[in-house]
Simulated scan of single mutants.
Amino acid sequence: MRPFKTVKLLNTLSLSIGLLFGAQTVQAASYQIDSKGMHAAVQFKIQHLGYSWLNGRFDQFSGHFTYDSAQPNASSVMVEIDTRSINSNHAERDKHLRSADFLNVSKYPNAKFVSTSIVESASGIKVNGNLTLNGVTKKMTIDAEKIGEGKDPWGGYRAGFSGTTQFKLADFGITYDLGPASTEVFMTLDIEGIRQ
């Protein structure tokens, strides 16, 4: 084979291989959670004595996620919560919740969730990861759903998800006795991200 044709053939093969593998390694889009515009929320509820629900939220948090609708299982998410910002709509109770009896915010001012895998199927989205709270890290799964994605009125692009999970306080070293009906916390995370 002539040298010119050999070089041309090699160049064609290199381009084809590059296109093939490049298509398979496309990076998922990165999104910043819109906590500044408060188009996101981290909320919780726990039973009070087995008679009612106590609801609250964390006012300060941040995070980011990656998402590609063509490859949702390659996504990832990280959320960091300022535990000092707990708000149960009662100042004295919040002071107690910040104490060493519960969140111990003077020692552990942040909680953090980092995904390890995300699995999307016909039944929904499972976000598997690690939650660090009160200095303890445990595996956790968030049941999530995609709310939607698309352009916003300001020239950006957004995607939003909602997720729920639950865990026992004792799993994170919080053993203050609130009664047998109040050992488990239920959390809801609504996040809207702005594509970067």
Results as ranks from 00 to 15, higher is better:
Trp154Gln: 00
Ser35Thr: 12
Arg93Val: 08
Thr83Val: 09
Lys45Leu: 09
Gly50His: 11
Asp152Tyr: 07
Glu120Arg: 08
Leu19Gln: 00
Ser99Phe: 08
Phe65Leu: 05
Met38Pro: 06
Ala122Arg: 15
Ala28Asn: 10
Gln60Asp: 08
Phe113Arg: 05
Asp34Ala: 00
Thr141Ser: 01
Ser85Tyr: 09
Thr83Ala: 08
Gln47Gly: 13
Met78Gln: 03
Thr12Leu: 13
Ala29Val: 02
Lys151Asp: 02
Lys151Gln: 13
His90Asp: 13
Lys139Trp: 06
Leu20Ala: 14
Gly22Ile: 08
Gly22Asn: 03
Ser115Arg: 08
Asn110Met: 00
Ser115Leu: 00
His39Ile: 00
Gly56Ile: 10
Asp82Trp: 08
Asn104Tyr: 02
Ile46Ser: 03
Asn87Glu: 12
Ala122Phe: 12
Lys8Glu: 04
Glu80Met: 15
Phe102Asn: 10
Gly129Ile: 02
Thr12Ile: 15
Pro153Gly: 07
Leu131Cys: 10
Glu92Met: 11
Leu9Tyr: 10
His48Val: 01
Asp94Arg: 14
Lys126Asp: 06
Gln47Thr: 04
Pro109Ile: 09
Gln24Met: 14
Ala23Met: 07
Tyr67His: 10
Tyr31Arg: 05
Gln32Asn: 12
Ala41Thr: 04
Gly50Val: 07
Asp152Val: 01
Gln43Phe: 06
Ser69His: 12
Leu54Cys: 08
Gln71Asp: 05
His90Asn: 15
Tyr51Lys: 13
His48Arg: 13
Asn11Gly: 13
Ser115Tyr: 09
Pro109Tyr: 14
Tyr51Thr: 14
Asn89Pro: 07
Gly148Lys: 11
Pro72Ser: 10
Tyr108Val: 02
Lys95Asp: 10
Ser99Asp: 02
Leu13Lys: 09
Ser123Thr: 12
Asn87Ile: 04
Thr137Cys: 09
Met140Tyr: 06
Gly22Met: 05
Tyr108Asp: 10
Leu13Pro: 11
Met78Asn: 15
